[in-house]
């Protein structure tokens, strides 16, 4: 049971990165369907940076650097994807859905290349990410659940809490939300809509990229053998599940993680029903979507101009 919860948390936190990033992006009015691709690229950049560092450093590996370098590379890769997305949708005014799906296809291709073609071995770096707090083992099941995780798990929670605070309690958050709700109003109030959309998308993608890194290095222990875009789609579903609130995402992501791996912990299920079990998160999301639509509480609806482009001249 403890192993199940620990596993659910570790998988859930990779979703949390993705959903926090996507929430920030969506709050600016960008429906970024490129998140799976962003996570793939994030993982690719981070893992490859780790591989390069470990190869270069040989024996004298600094554990802090072994963690920091991949994280920075991932943030950079994710932000770059966000920059491409923003450039296409804000500056060149492309359709957001098409742009997002293109990025997903691109990202999947990149990660396939990284797994198969570079010959890099990623499992070595994993131990730096999964290093647990030293006193975790002394506290029994409590320590296992709360302190046995690697650094990225805590980072995910911290980022979700900070995002939640920024969105609801600061002037920047207020301005960002107004851009996603009603860009014309934001523009009239003197807010630079394009800048907010660029920033939110780049930051959001950088955070989402960490999800990919976390999945490969932490959850898979570096045994990266298959493409990871599925977690990206779950992250997008999680955004809806948590009604665009990153702090709810912390709990939501653990629920998702638990649902996703539940099949492995229930004995005596066939392969087919295992796959059916994996659908649970999506079904739950649909139920939540129906539920929030019926209740029709405005605060729980997606940002009003989500997916819509904004040009000042058009009326």
């Amino acid at each position: 049971m403890v192993a199940f919860i620990v596993s659910a948390i570790r998988l859930g936190m990779t979703f949390l990165f993705g959903s926090t990033g996507e929430t920030i992006t969506e709050k600016s009015g960008h429906l970024n369907l490129g998140i799976p691709g962003v996570m793939c690229v994030g993982a690719s950049c981070g893992c490859f940076a780790e591989y390069l560092y470990l190869t270069a450093a040989k024996r004298s590996v600094e554990p802090i650097l072994a963690v920091l370098i991949p994280i920075l590379a991932t943030l950079l890769g994710g932000a770059l994807m966000g920059l491409i997305y923003s450039f296409l949708t804000v500056t060149l005014r492309c359709n957001q859905n098409v742009t997002g799906l293109t990025l997903t296809t691109f990202g999947v291709g990149v990660s396939d290349f990284m797994i198969a073609k570079t010959g890099a071995i990623y499992s070595k770096g994993s131990k730096y990410f999964t290093a647990a707090l030293p006193f975790a083992d002394d506290l029994g099941w409590f320590g296992k659940i709360f302190f046995s995780h690697g650094i990225l798990i805590y980072l995910a929670i911290a980022i979700a809490l900070i995002s939640s605070f920024v969105l609801s309690k600061t002037r920047i958050g207020l301005n960002l939300r107004s851009v996603g709700e009603n860009p014309a109003t934001a523009d009239a109030a003197g807010i630079n809509v394009a800048r907010y959309r660029y920033m939110a998308t780049c930051i959001g993608c950088a955070i989402a990229g960490l999800g990919g890194l976390s999945f490969v290095m932490d959850y898979l222990h570096g045994n990266w053998e298959y493409c990871i875009d599925a977690i990206g789609w779950l992250a997008i579903a999680l955004v809806i599940f948590t009604v665009w609130k990153p702090n709810l995402g912390i709990i939501g992501s653990i629920v998702f993680g638990a649902l996703y791996i539940a099949s492995s912990y229930i004995t005596g299920v066939s392969f087919a029903s295992k796959e059916l079990f994996k659908m649970l998160p999506y079904i739950v999301t649909i139920v939540v979507l129906i539920f929030t639509s019926i209740r029709d509480k405005k605060e729980n609806q997606p940002p009003q101009s989500l997916g819509l482009p904004y040009f000042r001249e058009e009326r």
């Binding site: 309690k169 600061t170 207020l174 009603n182 109003t185």
Partner: peptide, 22 residues
Amino acid sequence: KLVDVFSATENIVLGLEEKGRY
């Protein structure tokens, strides 16, 4: 030109670059 899901006050201060804490 108002944001529907914001409160009256939030709409009123929107976009203002005041000094000091929000």
